[in-house]
Design a binder for these strands. Structure first.
Length: 436
DNA sequence: AAGTGTTTATCTCCGA
DNA sequence: TCGGAGATAAACACTT
């Protein structure tokens, strides 16, 4: 079965904004920072639509980089000449996108004036300039600058921190641990390795806020900061078959799966640490948005109930009158959005899905409560880590196994979701997008 | 010269 | 109707 890729949009304009495309490019880079040229390349490689009229969209993209606070410019090292600076995402920027989907953006990302000042002052340091402002109030989701001082001696609000590329490189080379313990994961929460929420200590206040990309996005590999100065070859699209071997059964949500795919593509060692959303464990994977965009030629694939309700609009969906009847009485008419790129993995997952193991179904049932769900997540992650660490082939096979609950079992556990965003509606109805 | 970055302006779309 | 978000155009300055 063909796997949809970004190329699937063909010459049709993808449903992503320039901000989303840029964020994707940055996210897709190993060090979570890249040059303007890298961003151009990522977009033109992935989206044929952008191989023409380059002047137009590149101008727009540059405008967006400058205009939006979610993008942070990091100067080059003086001894590494080249055109343009590096661009990275503000540590809170991933929160812009609902449920981690680049198709949907909550609201415009704005940082406060003091934060902006502090950031600019810190970035000035990269060029050897003076520190003008090194303190401000922290906002939720921010991370702290990597500094040469021990973490036990974090500076007070009046302490100046040496901040330069060497510092960043040194901190990264030592594979710094996050300064804070990871918060527990709540059911329904979408978190992947680079979620800024993962590293935001709510108790720390009045710290200097400057951003080290290597700390915002801790790299599990030993790839150093400097590697980003030598642009790596373009990453392949997420390797979904690769991810399958990482994901404990049963399948995760679309968003999680895509995140896992991206993470595994970027760094296999990151993937096992991706927490799974307990409620998503029960969810049939296919949503209306993904289904319509793909032309829905997949019979036998479990669909979210809402998608089935919309069958008249999207011919090809497998009928399920029981679910439709249930939903006509109980559910909103809209299906939650999907991340198209993740759909392929679910397709392949389904083809590999075996009958649901009875013991595992009981386990799932037992874990429906939030606390239990978290325990399940941690258990699965531990199990997966152990499996990978010891190379236990039996466990690996078991963890590979995907579980696809029948529709009749899931109609009453649909998560509350919002309406599809405009871009998704467009994508869903696009004839090109359907012809995958 | 070409690429990069900033700023301003205008327009459309959409949701409140 | 209004405001926010996004797309686009354009002018300009700076860097390589």
């Amino acid at each position: 079965m063909p796997r949809p890729t970004r190329e699937s949009y063909g010459d049709q304009k993808p449903p992503y904004s320039y901000i989303s495309l840029t964020a994707m490019a940055i996210w897709n880079s190993p060090e979570k920072m890249c040059t303007l040229a890298d961003i151009y390349k990522f977009i033109t490689d992935g989206f044929p639509y952008y191989r023409k009229n380059t002047q137009r969209w590149q101008n727009s993209l540059r405008h967006n980089l400058s205009f939006n606070d979610c993008f942070i410019k990091i100067p080059r090292r003086p001894d590494r000449p080249g055109k343009g600076a590096y661009w990275t995402l503000h540590p809170s920027a991933m929160n812009m996108f609902e449920n981690g989907s680049f198709l949907r953006r909550r609201k415009r990302f704005k940082i406060t004036k003091p934060e902006k000042d502090a950031l600019e002052a810190g970035l000035q340091q990269l060029n050897g300039g003076p520190i003008n402002c090194m303190e401000t109030n922290r906002c939720p989701g921010e991370t702290l600058l990597s500094s040469p001082v021990p973490s036990t001696a974090l500076p007070t609000s009046h302490t100046k921190i040496a901040f330069n590329v060497e510092t960043l490189a040194a901190s990264d080379a030592k594979s710094p641990k996050p300064r804070v313990s990871l918060p527990s994961i709540s059911p329904g929460q979408f978190q992947i390795g680079l979620s800024p929420n993962l590293f935001s200590p709510p108790s720390l206040q009045h710290r200097p806020i400057l951003y080290s990309p290597s700390e915002i996005y801790p790299t599990p590999t030993s790839v150093g900061f400097y590697s980003s100065l030598y642009p790596p070859p373009p990453l392949p699209p997420p390797q979904f078959h690769h991810v399958q071997s990482y994901l404990p059964s049963p399948p995760t949500s679309l968003h999680h799966l895509y995140a896992a795919a991206m993470a595994a593509t970027m760094s296999p060692s990151l993937a096992p640490s991706i927490p799974l959303r307990p409620t998503a464990l029960h969810m049939p994977p296919i949503t209306l948005a993904s289904l319509s965009a793909l032309g829905s030629p997949f019979s036998g694939v479990p669909f979210r109930p809402q998608a089935i309700l919309s069958r008249p609009c999207y011919p090809g969906m497998p009928p399920n009158s029981a679910a439709a009847r249930f939903l006509s009485a109980n559910s909103p008419p809209h299906s939650p959005p999907a991340n198209l790129a993740s759909l392929a993995s679910l397709m392949s997952a389904h083809t590999r899905a075996q009958e649901l193991d009875e013991d595992e179904q009981i386990l799932i049932d037992d874990y429906e409560e939030e606390d239990a769900g978290q325990k399940m997540v941690s258990d699965m992650v531990s199990k997966l880590r152990a499996s990978i660490e010891y190379g236990d082939e039996v466990d690996k096979r078991r963890l590979n196994k995907t579980i696809t609950p029948p529709l009749s079992d899931v109609a009453d556990i649909t998560e509350p979701e919002s309406r599809p965003a405009k871009g998704e509606v467009l994508a869903s109805t696009s004839p090109t997008a359907r012809s995958v």
